[in-house]
Every structure is written in C-alpha cells, then in structure tokens.
Amino acid sequence: MVVLSEISENLQKGKAKIVKELVTQAIAEGMDPEQILNEGLLAGMNVVGEKFKNNEVYVPEVLVAARAMNMGAEVLKPHLAASGVVARGKVCIGTVAGDLHDIGKNLVKMMMEGKGLEVVDLGTDVSPETFVNTAESEGCQVICCSALLTTTMGAMEEVVKLAKERGIRDKVKIMIGGAPVSQEYCDKIGADCYTVDAASAADAAVKFCAELG
C-alpha cells in the first residue's frame, strides 16, 4: 500500500521515476486521485516552496522537484479529470516584450503548478496584447509578468494600461516580478502584486484566484 508521504518525500528529493511509480501504484490500489494530488504531490511541492523561500533549497532542487511533480501529475491527470477535480485557478504567465530571460518565469510557473493552479505559459518576449488576449480567451484570473532588464520592465505598465482599456481589471489581477522590479514600481504602475520570490508569487496567485472565484 502506497503511503502518500513517500510520494511527497521522493518528490522533494527530485526522484521523478520513483514518484511516477508510486503515483501509478497508488491509482492501481484505488486511492482517491485528489488525495494523491493534495497529500502526495502538492504537499511535497509545498515543502520545497517553503524551503526555497527560506534559502534551505536552491534553484536546482526546485527544478528537479518540479520535474518529479510533473511526472506524477501526468499519470494523475486523466484520473483527476474523470473524477471532476478542477484546478484551483488559472494564470497566464510570460516574460515581457523585449526580454528573453525565462528562468525566473519558469520557477514561478513551477511553484504555481505546485499549488494546484493551471498555468498558461506564454514564453518570452510576450506583447501586452498577448497577455491580455490570453487572459480574456482562457478565462485567467491572474496575469503574471516577469522581466529581468531595467529596459524591459516598462512593458509591465503597458499590460496594466491595456487591461484597463479592455475593462477587465475587476476580473483579472496583475502580478509582476523579476530582478529590477520592486513594490514601489508595482505601486507606481498600478499592478496588483509584487512578490520577492517564486514561492511567494504562487501563494499570492492562489489567494487572488480564491478571491475572484
């Protein structure tokens, strides 16, 4: 009988193959898919996120843990769909126009998926139109903009302006992050949230999705 804490522990160590095997075994044993997700995969990723916030684990450890989670989640997905389990919310994320840096964006994406959110990854060099169009067409509650360069962070303000023009600011929260970004800048451009790290960004997105329903 699979113990869910084993899934969580192996995920934290980045043991992707073992996580996949354990999830497969748990399903075969008739365990509830939602319980496997919450108490196995998401519980493990939650620990990784907290340790990352506290500098107890670093980027490579987050990456291998997220990979393990994704391998387990792949097995779990059809069973979750069959039992009517839905994501905790939907986010679109990208690196803003003119900026090709994506490690920070990818970390935030992994952390958000680790919180049970559905994430639409728009990649890098994403125009304000793409952010806003995607939020509208995909029904995202959160737009998440990343930038590494001082010269590209200005594009975040364009996203906020465009969302306002389209009249979706009451339906969509806009989060910003990246090395040159600060709370002061977030306030200045009228975005909804700035967080200092990827794990905190995921926490904030979960909160926004819960608020917006």
Partner: peptide, 12 residues
C-alpha cells in the same frame, strides 16, 4: 547569484 542569493547550495 540572482536577487535572492546564490542559485545553488553551498553543498553543490
């Protein structure tokens, strides 16, 4: 390093 410190652990 990035704005949150080193990208890898001391052990690494």
């Amino acid at each position: 390093s990035y704005n949150r410190g080193p990208m890898l652990s001391k052990a690494c």
